[in-house]
């Protein structure tokens, strides 16, 4: 196994910016199957500690900055209770 510091790094990895994601969860549609929590590749979701109106624990956002908009949670959710959108970049103060 090659040590991590010798791993190849993409040449433009510093210029590429990961998109900022916004995770939208509709708690009352969730049936609590936990697929999104379990299969999120970046572990951006966790189980919430509040019951929803169906009596299950829906997911909640653990760390929104980890999300890379891969859309796997949206694709695997059987209940259409979660989706992600790209967060609009805030325009900087000097208008650039």
């Amino acid at each position: 196994m090659v040590p991590r510091k010798l791993w190849r790094r993409p040449l433009d990895s510093e210029q590429i910016k990961l998109p900022k994601a916004e995770i939208h969860i509709i708690p009352d549609l969730c049936k609590g199957c936990d697929f999104c929590i379990e299969f999120c590749p970046r572990k951006a979701l966790e189980e919430s500690d509040k019951l929803n109106k169906r009596g299950v624990y829906p997911p909640k956002v653990a760390d929104e900055s980890k999300c890379t908009l891969c859309g796997f949670c949206t694709a695997i959710c059987p209940d259409f209770a979660i989706f992600t959108t790209e967060k609009k970049e805030e325009t900087s103060r000097n208008g650039r």
């Binding site: 049936k31 299950v56 694709a75 695997i76 959710c77 059987p78 259409f80």
Partner: peptide
Amino acid sequence: RMPHIWCEGCGNGILLNCFLQ
């Protein structure tokens, strides 16, 4: 008609999701 009648964790919802995608 939403939410659908399928149980939690059922693959039918995933199939519906994939078909709509």
